[in-house]
Design a protein around this nucleic acid. Structure first.
Length: 249
DNA sequence: ATGGTAGCCTTGCTA
């Protein structure tokens, strides 16, 4: 979302219109003490926040009570970056994650991304053992396939397209998760992010990097998954736009 | 033409 402080009005507008039961936020760019819990509470939502000054920061908003909150990616001890929070809402384990970008590839940022993904692979597999509905949602900074980027050739060397990163993403899928949007849609050219620069939004030159991964118990309940492009076209928009999914009983 | 925009505070770094 690129700053909760700047985009609180847009967030409240969207909450009022879309009225989701749960909202997963990434890149709030602030600490828990400065998170606008009062305003969001007035809108009818509880908050669970794992914040950080300046960069990163994730949160879960929910109409229903948020239970068993866990801050930080289990197993990734000592990680100074706030990129993962999970909790239980209405019996569903829900995670909001902000996977490292990894660019430039020839710096320490890329191995940090891969190491973070290795922990996510392990944690996702561990969650499957509980045989509960699990939804791992957020900014994965992974372009799963060439149909998910406007210029695959131009992006092939970017960290978001690297084989090593895509392979780890597929490992999670192979372990038993489905990627909700792709499970329900075969069409390409559907994007969740458009860079601020070079008129990418106006040209519809985007990336699909925001995903929901669902355990079998959640996948059985999946009814719909869509991208709401409307907020990206509004004034002072985030460079990401909301992706949503619905689970039945 | 190694550009361009946005947000944070570290007026450079991250995306």
């Amino acid at each position: 979302m690129n700053s909760i402080k700047v985009r609180l009005p847009q967030l409240l507008t969207w909450l009022g219109k879309a009225a989701p039961d749960i909202l997963l936020l990434q890149e709030i760019k602030t600490v828990e003490e400065k998170f606008p819990e009062l305003e969001i509470g007035d809108a009818g939502y509880n908050c669970a926040v794992f914040g950080q000054k300046t960069y990163n920061g994730v949160a879960i908003l929910s109409k229903r009570p948020i239970e068993d909150i866990n801050r930080g990616l289990p197993g990734n001890v000592g990680d100074p970056q706030a990129r993962y929070i999970d909790a239980v809402v209405s019996g569903v384990r829900v995670a909001s994650l902000y996977l490292p970008n990894g660019n430039p590839v020839n710096t320490e940022k890329f191995p940090y991304k891969l190491a973070w993904m290795d922990h996510l692979v392990d944690h996702a597999a561990n969650l499957l053992a509980n045989e509960e509905a699990v939804v791992l949602g957020g900014d994965y900074n992974i372009i799963p396939a060439d149909g998910d980027v406007y210029d695959p050739e131009g992006w092939k060397n970017d960290a978001l397209c690297q084989q090593a990163a895509r392979a780890r993403f597929r490992t999670i899928l192979n372990s038993g998760y489905i990627e909700a949007f792709r499970a329900l849609h075969s069409e390409t050219g559907c994007y969740s992010f458009w860079d601020y620069q070079k008129g990418r939004w106006q040209r519809d030159e985007g990336l699909r990097i925001d995903h929901f991964l669902l355990s079998p118990e959640a996948a059985d309940r999946l009814q719909a998954c869509e991208i709401d492009r409307d907020p990206r076209g509004q004034p002072k928009a985030s460079d990401h736009t909301p992706v949503w999914c619905t689970l039945g009983e």
